[in-house]
Amino acid sequence: MVSEQDIWKYLEEVSDPEIPVLTIGDLGVIRTISLENELCTVVITPTYSGCPAMKVIEEDIISKLHEKGVPNVKVELTLSPAWTTDWITENGRAKLLEYGIAPPEDEVDKSVLFAAPTVVPCPKCGSRNTRMISQFGSTACKAHYQCNDCLEPYDYFKCLK
């Protein structure tokens, strides 16, 4: 008989389709796992409303658990509480940095218009002399930055609170 603990463990093998270096656990999108009468329910929350990866994540969870011998799996989506970048684990942040994506920095409230862009250290050389190219990057969750010292262009996993 599998336990909830086992399910959490199995799901460590499911990675985020857009940032494969992260597991969905690292990303903090798995909210709860429950087992009841042979049915395993996994509740996940989207990072962004329009995140196209959610459908893939749902399918990956189901097929991973099938592979592990858990036949009855239901994946539910919840919007509340809303996902925040604070839920990315320490391990996840370290993996992002190693992968070349700057992890989220603590930022001022977005309701403050025209605040200077956040200083995001370069993931390649560590320099803080960097600039924001665009608030919007390759996916909904990222902004686009460039290092003024080593010239590396890089993604920044922008802070969402």
Partner: peptide
Amino acid sequence: DEQLSAIAVKSLKETKYHLKHSSE
């Protein structure tokens, strides 16, 4: 209304970025 509130909380985080972009 719980669900409307949940959707609003989620959307607001994104919309603030949009407003910043369009205002600038």
